[in-house]
Design a protein around this nucleic acid. Structure first.
Lengths: 212, 212
DNA sequence: CTGCAAATACGGGTTTCCCCCGGGATGAAT
DNA sequence: ATTCATCCCGGGGGAAACCCGTATTTGCAG
């Protein structure tokens, strides 16, 4: 019987190694390679083509969504499962558009992981219950799709999340403080929060921002 | 040769299982049990006594520091290594007082983990380089020890981190908004930050607060 | 070309934050 | 009994945040 070839992309060494061993325990699975970021992943693909890829979304150098998009451009048959810390409710359309076939949380257990891999390998989609609920709740609550952040807004969002004031941001970006405030306001409306505290929580949960 | 008996306490199933397998690979190590929170850990101790405990600090039900304190009260020979996501610079005195012998980050690799376990098992202490640097930097920078948060301040801190305004906090705690502002100011001074954004980052990095 | 989205900028207004100052009440410790 | 920490409450003020507009430039897609 042919084993399912799996690749793991995650920047946490211990976690990656752990997952590798967890999957190695399972008969039908074989981890062909693992690496710590999206750019290295694309290099590995040239030599070895896995059936299923477990992809962390939030990573340095190149994030999971971009890596998935680029990988699928060259290897359309690749099946990618996002493996994240939080249930990201705003990026899921981007992810699905990028070609992600499954989405599970890091706090799930190995049985769910196993099921996700098998399902996706067989041509299906797998989304964990918690994420499905949030997606459903979202589509009921918000009739329109999630507002996409502008490039500039993403810059400002990152600086706000890092604790910079509007004045400091205006100095860094060489724009008027008024402009910064406009971006702030737009960001707040798009993310449906009221203050910086809620914004940071939202940004972390939705992979717009991460500590360190 | 007698193996080193290890216990793993962490609320993330996949990570815990991964670590278990990583350690299982190493000849001298034997994982005797793993569990998802401090309270269950104390129950397990009654039946099986490990040599070294890998303890996540931030956990539901009972956090790692409290679990360590209680465990050492009954079993003074126990050696506990803290295994956290961030390099917590404010709790390290508490941790050392609680009896923690080592402190490493989740993003470290298995070799460092192995070394930490061996060192601590042999009666030594192990602190990862990154944490040592922060501790040194801190002791140079701040002559006085880290200011301890009051119980009330911890409550306010949690609410601030959850994105509540001072008015909302005053409503929740049935105190004047002026009192809330006093607490805020004291919290800001104790944590040496300037605004809510920096405060949340600080709180997360120092395990005063965590998402979800 | 034209329409639209994005980025830039400004003004004026309200609210919240953040800091300074002060005082009073409690309870524990010495 | 005095000291100390903690919690509570208040005034006042400046800075920043936040909300409401309008308006110009740029660039891209239809």
């Amino acid at each position: 019987m042919k084993k399912i070839k799996i690749a793991i992309i995650d920047d946490h060494d211990l976690f990656r190694e752990g997952i590798r061993l967890v999957l190695g325990q399972i008969e039908d699975f074989e981890v062909v390679f693992d690496t710590s970021n999206g750019a290295l992943f694309l290099e590995f693909l040239k030599n070895s083509l896995p059936d299923v890829v477990l992809m962390d979304i939030n990573m340095p150098v190149m994030d999971g969504v971009e890596a998935t998009r680029k990988a699928l451009a060259s290897y359309p048959g690749l099946k990618v499962i996002a493996l994240t810390m939080f249930s990201d409710t705003t990026h899921y359309t981007q992810m699905i558009n990028a070609g992600i076939k499954g989405f599970i949380l890091k706090k799930s257990n190995k049985f769910e992981l196993q099921q996700a891999i098998n399902t996706v390998y067989s041509g299906g989609n797998y989304f964990s219950q918690e994420i499905l609920q949030k997606m459903a709740f979202r589509s009921v609550n918000v009739s329109s799709g999630p507002d996409r952040m502008t490039q500039r807004e993403l810059e400002v969002l990152d600086l706000v999340c890092n604790g910079f004031t509007s004045q400091e941001i205006s100095d860094k970006l060489f724009i008027s403080i008024k402009t910064v405030e406009v971006h702030r306001t737009n960001i707040f409306h798009k993310s449906d929060v009221r203050n910086v505290g809620e914004l940071i929580l939202w940004a972390i949960k939705n992979n717009y921002f991460s500590i360190e």
